[in-house]
Amino acid sequence: MTAELIHAGLTRDEMARRAARDIPDGAYVNLGIGIPELVAAHIPPGREVIYHTENGVMGFGPPPPEGEEDPELINAGKKPITLLPGASFFHHADSFAMIRGGHIDFCILGAMQVARNGDLANWSTGAPGAIPAVGGAMDLVAGAGRIVVITEHCAKDGSPKLVDACTYPLTGRGVVARVFTDLAVVDVTSEGFVLREIAPGVDLDTVRRLTGAPLLAAAGIKTIEP
């Protein structure tokens, strides 16, 4: 039985909506591929957020309508994008200067594993025969201001993604500040994982059972508003 069948939890859009509430007004933000991309559609009204894509755009908008795609206007996931007024283009060295130089305030990534000390693994299983491909993930975690992760609480095979120590090759050490899952909002602290918020209909014991490391309960755990 898969993890999805044995517990309630947030949808991908609900996870993205919860994560979007953490992004402050005025932030320069880089969104990873997958669920993180959904966050842009859920920024609370009244906040202006500018999106960076590491292949060389600041200030891109939603995907274009079908038929209006431009093969030379794409994001880091190689998908077509549009530009918002005030957008800019730049070459790769400048783009990664923005990242490494600390000019990107907030970065939301996917994960294969997050360890209780904040280590992140999200680029390779290290399996024999796998083609290793890293892209910009190691640069983003080394340089962006606040690194948070959105991911299902468990992998497709039911194994926990929040673990004591990563078994997959690392993307970066001690880099993750917070994890948004379908079950909970979990902070990475000097004491390890701390549960801050929990999805409606999910109880603490369930989250603990599906977490591969000790999970401390914060005082006054809140229920996530989907």
Binding site: H92, A93, F96, G135, D139
Partner: peptide, 13 residues
């Protein structure tokens, strides 16, 4: 294959 982080590749160039 020499695998290089994207930003490191750019900065090396």
């Amino acid at each position: 294959l020499e695998l290089v982080p994207q930003g490191t590749l750019a900065e090396r160039i």
